[in-house]
Amino acid sequence: MSRLNALRSRFVDAPDSLGAKARARRWNWFAESFPDLSSMSVIDLGGTASAWLRAPVQPAHVQIVNLETPPADLPGWLRADVADACALPPGILDTHYDLVFSNAVIEHVGGHLRRRMFADSVHRLAERHWVQTPYRYFPVEPHFLFPGFQYLPIAARTALLRRWPLVHTPTSDREAARNIVMEVELLSITEMRHYFPSSEIRFERLGGLVKSVLAIKEK
């Protein structure tokens, strides 16, 4: 078990892991796409304060929207609100932002209708956006680090999750495991183009294969 956990760390969690290097490249790409980022107000749908505090970039102001309660002590440039990104309250929807940012969230919101509502929030909040999601047809499912996990029946995924030690949040409880696997619905390129028809669709690749899909609108 410890060897497998060390393997997860090597590939995803450790500072020198493949996952960490991919995240660093993505931050650099993000900064290059929006060179005036340091003067922008950004709303992050589904992000976390810890991610921004570790990030190599710092906009003038970041407002995070997440369903989880944020930390109490945040720097002045960072604000966090508890809200549903698919059904934002008027106080957020009526605020002007320069940019909407979202990293690996749209695959978690729950079904086509909710993804449509999420995309509508993105389009309403700002002229520009950066929305990233893992690609459905990359061979290794990124949340569970198991080849072809996303193509298996729910019962098989549930059984695997209860035993596979490389997952981010392991559980031996059957109902909890089933809820976890049903909560993730990876998207295709076609779906991302449908939700973001006026965006430029770009790709992150690993080993020549598309690993994640990004909808980017720079102007």
Rank of each mutant, 00 (worst) to 15 (best):
T133I: 11
S39T: 12
V122T: 11
R79M: 13
L78W: 12
S17Q: 11
F146Y: 05
A49L: 04
R136E: 09
L160H: 01
S172M: 05
D173C: 03
A104S: 15
A31F: 03
V100I: 14
N28R: 09
I180L: 14
F196N: 02
L125P: 02
V122K: 10
R178L: 07
F146D: 00
D173N: 10
P170M: 11
A176E: 10
S17V: 05
P134H: 09
I216V: 07
S199V: 03
A126W: 03
A83I: 09
Y137L: 01
T190R: 07
A6M: 14
L67K: 14
E185C: 06
I154N: 05
I201Q: 13
E141G: 00
S33V: 03
P147Y: 03
Q150F: 05
A51M: 15
H123I: 11
P147N: 10
H194L: 11
F144W: 06
I43C: 01
S38D: 05
F101L: 06
C86V: 07
S17H: 08
P139N: 06
H168K: 08
A176D: 14
A83H: 07
G19E: 12
Q63F: 12
L67G: 15
C86I: 02
W29K: 11
D98G: 07
F138K: 11
S33W: 00
P89F: 08
K219Q: 09
L209K: 13
P153N: 10
E127M: 12
T133W: 07
Y195R: 06
P15W: 14
A215R: 06
V131N: 00
E32C: 02
A72E: 09
L214N: 02
A159T: 10
K211V: 00
Q150D: 03
A119F: 00
A6L: 13
D173L: 05
V12D: 05
L152K: 13
H168F: 06
V62E: 05
V213L: 01
P142V: 00
R174E: 14
H143C: 02
A155H: 11
